[in-house]
Simulated scan of single mutants.
Amino acid sequence: MNDLAGFLRTRRSRIDPSAVGVPTDSRRRVDGLRREEVAHLSGVSVDYYVRLEQGRATQPSEQVLDALARVLGLDETERGHLYRLARRRRRRAKSPSGRLRPELLRVLDLVTDALALILDHRLDVAAANRLARLLYGREMSGLNTARHIFLEETERGLYADWEKCTLDVVGHLRLAAGKYPDDPRLASLIGELAMGSERFRRLWARADVSARTHGRKAYRHPLVGLLELHQENFALPDESGMELLVLSAASGSSTEDGLRLLSAFNSDGNPTEKGSRVTNTS
C-alpha cells in the first residue's frame, strides 16, 4: 500500500464531520470525512485528492500539504511525517551507519544512579550501562526493544505499562519507516513483528506516528518490584539516527531505593560482595 495514501485515509477517518462544519445524517455510512469533503475543505479538486489517495499523484505542493494538515488536524509530528511521505520520491534519506564513538561509551558508563542506553532508529540497543543491563537481566548487545516488547514479553512481564509501550513502539517505527524507506533491516523487523504479533498488526494498520522525547516509564522487576522512572530522550548530534535514553528516579522515592537495591546485585541476580555487606548491616 502506498504509505502516503494509507496515511491520508487513516487520518480522514478519525475526523468528526460536525467538528469541521460538515452536516451529517443517519444515512452516513463512513467513518470520518469522505474524500470529496477533504478536497473541498482543503481547496483542491476532488480528482486531485482521489489521485493522492490512490498513489497516482506525486509531489504535492507545500500549499496543498499545509491545507491537508490543517483539515486533518495533524499535530507537529504527524505533519512532519506527511511531508516526508509526500517528498519521498524527491529525496530518500540514507540509513544511518550506527557507529558509536568510544568517547560516548565512556559517558554512558559515567551514569551510575540512573538507567542509560543508546538505541538506533530500529530500536536496536547499541549500548547500555550497568543498571540498564541489571533491569533487563541480560547483556543488551543485540537486543531489539520492539521485538522484546511484542514477541518476548507480555502484559505481565517487565513492562508495567505494556499497552502504552506498544503504542509508543509502533508510533516510533512508523516515523522511522517514513524517514528511512530503503532500510532493509527495518523492513524485515516490521515484517517479523507483523507475522508474530496480532496486536502489532492492528496498531500498524492505524498508521499512527509519535515521537516521545520524555515521560513516565514503569517497569516491574522480579527482585525489586515496581520502578516508576522518568525518561528523557536525547538525539545524538552526529546524524547517526541514535538516541541516548536516561531513565531516572525522583529523589527520595521508593523507586530510588529500588534502583539502589538493584545496583547491589550482579548480572546473575545475586548480591554482590558490596550488596551483601549492605544487607548484613541493615
Rank of each mutant, 00 (worst) to 15 (best):
N2F: 04
D3N: 11
L4P: 01
G6F: 03
G6W: 03
T10Y: 03
T10N: 12
R11G: 05
R14I: 07
D16N: 15
A19R: 14
V22L: 08
P23L: 02
R28M: 03
R28D: 00
V30R: 03
D31T: 15
L33V: 06
R35Q: 09
A39P: 02
S42T: 01
G43Y: 05
V46R: 13
V46W: 06
D47T: 13
L52N: 00
E53H: 01
G55C: 00
R56D: 08
A57W: 04
T58W: 07
S61V: 11
S61T: 13
V64Q: 03
L65A: 01
L65H: 01
D66I: 01
D66Q: 10
L68T: 00
L68M: 04
A69R: 04
R70Q: 13
R70A: 13
L72Y: 03
L74E: 03
E76F: 04
E78A: 15
L85N: 06
A86T: 00
A86E: 04
R89I: 03
R90W: 09
K94Q: 15
S95Q: 08
R99I: 10
L100K: 06
P102T: 08
R106H: 14
V107L: 15
L108H: 08
V111M: 03
T112K: 14
L115K: 06
A116W: 02
L117Q: 14
L117I: 09
D120P: 01
R122H: 13
V125H: 04
A126P: 00
A126D: 09
A127M: 05
A132I: 05
R133D: 00
E139F: 06
E139G: 15
G142S: 04
G142V: 02
N144D: 06
A146D: 01
R147G: 03
L151P: 07
E155D: 15
E155F: 06
E155L: 10
R156K: 12
C165Y: 07
V169S: 10
G171N: 09
G171T: 09
L173N: 08
R174E: 13
A177N: 01
P181Q: 10
D183R: 08
P184F: 09
S188R: 14
L189F: 07
I190P: 04
E192N: 07
L193H: 11
A194D: 12
A194S: 15
F200A: 09
W204Q: 04
W204R: 07
R212Q: 13
G215S: 03
K217R: 15
Y219H: 05
Y219L: 03
H221R: 10
L226K: 10
E228T: 04
L229I: 07
L229N: 05
L229P: 04
Q231V: 11
Q231N: 12
A235V: 14
L245S: 14
L247T: 01
S248N: 02
A250S: 13
G258N: 05
G258W: 08
R260W: 08
L261P: 02
L261G: 08
L261D: 10
L262V: 00
N266H: 08
N266K: 03
S267Y: 08
S267C: 07
G269H: 09
P271G: 00
P271N: 02
K274Y: 11
